[in-house]
Amino acid sequence: MFEKLQRAFWKALTPDLIAETLEAPTPSLLAADVLSALGGAENLKSQQRVALTRVRVQLQDAGRLDEAALKAAGVAGVMVLSGGVVHLITGL
């Protein structure tokens, strides 16, 4: 009972968050030009929608990331973290 109440509380505080589930890379989550700027589909280990305006991807090789191409593709912000994890800000 407490867990359900706790989940409802956090959902009310952060309505734009989406449940944390890892997904296999699918072209439908990212546009083709964004996918190519990340080094192609074969460079993705995982991708996950974190919120309505943010996508977290984990790359096989972070050196293949092209931040300028991501900006040109319409990604508002790019945050590169350690371990090949990249956060893409897709909205305002």
Rank of each mutant, 00 (worst) to 15 (best):
M1H: 11
F2I: 09
F2H: 06
F2G: 08
F2W: 05
E3S: 13
L5W: 11
Q6I: 15
Q6F: 10
R7M: 08
A8P: 01
F9C: 09
F9S: 10
W10L: 10
W10D: 01
K11Y: 10
A12L: 08
L13C: 08
L13N: 12
T14N: 15
P15L: 10
P15V: 06
L17S: 04
L17K: 02
I18D: 06
I18L: 15
A19C: 04
E20F: 11
E23N: 11
E23W: 07
E23H: 13
T26S: 05
P27Y: 02
P27R: 04
P27T: 10
S28G: 07
S28F: 12
A31N: 04
A32C: 09
A32K: 14
D33R: 05
V34H: 00
L35E: 05
S36H: 07
A37F: 04
A37L: 03
L38Y: 00
G39K: 00
G39A: 03
G39Y: 01
G40N: 06
G40I: 01
G40D: 05
A41Y: 01
A41F: 06
E42I: 12
E42N: 15
E42R: 15
N43E: 09
K45Y: 06
S46Q: 10
Q47G: 02
Q47L: 12
V50K: 05
A51L: 05
A51G: 13
A51H: 09
T53L: 08
R54Y: 11
R54I: 08
V57Y: 01
V57H: 02
Q58K: 13
Q60N: 15
Q60K: 14
Q60D: 10
D61P: 09
A62G: 04
A62F: 00
A62T: 11
R64F: 08
R64N: 14
R64C: 07
E67A: 08
E67P: 03
E67Y: 10
A68S: 15
A68M: 07
A68T: 10
L70Q: 04
K71C: 10
A72N: 15
A72H: 10
A72L: 14
G74C: 03
V75A: 02
A76S: 12
G77W: 00
V78L: 04
V80G: 11
V80L: 06
V80T: 14
L81H: 09
S82F: 03
G83V: 07
G84P: 02
G84Q: 02
V85I: 15
V85S: 09
V85W: 01
V85T: 11
H87W: 04
L88Q: 03
L88V: 02
I89E: 14
T90E: 06
T90R: 03
G91K: 01
G91C: 04
L92H: 08
L92E: 14
